[in-house]
Amino acid sequence: MADTQRPLSPHLQVYRWQVQMVSSILHRATGIALAVGSLLVVCGLLHLAAGEESFNYFKSLIGSPVGLVLLVGWSWALFYHLCNGIRHLVQDVGLGYGIPQFVRSSWLSVAGSIVLTVLVWAYVLTPGGAA
């Protein structure tokens, strides 16, 4: 344990910012956010099981401005963690460890998550389009 004065992880102060760092930090940050968001799934299921009134209350909560902002955040976190998670699984197989590939796949995770988030919310917010 840390009864020591040497610098401890994360060594943010000694590194120049680069996209591989961002993608790694974001993976943890979105993971934590999603762990909190998992409670929303539990809430939704409990309200659905509890009856119509309860479910409509839940729908009004997540449909409120604050609820929608949180949902946009959580959906991006989910898509980012999904894209970057697939990237890590590919790396676990032993692929994509060259520095140029590593940088490219980092950008791909970030871009892919934004594209997916925009697509889903375009679908959600299109009047009449989303059935």
Partner: peptide, 23 residues
């Protein structure tokens, strides 16, 4: 739901072990 919570615990565990330095 089961897989989600399992994965979440495994991930949070690593984060806590890495960054919480008071036993």
């Amino acid at each position: 739901v089961l897989t989600m919570f399992w994965h979440a615990v495994l991930g949070l565990q690593v984060v806590i072990e890495d960054y919480v330095h008071v036993r």
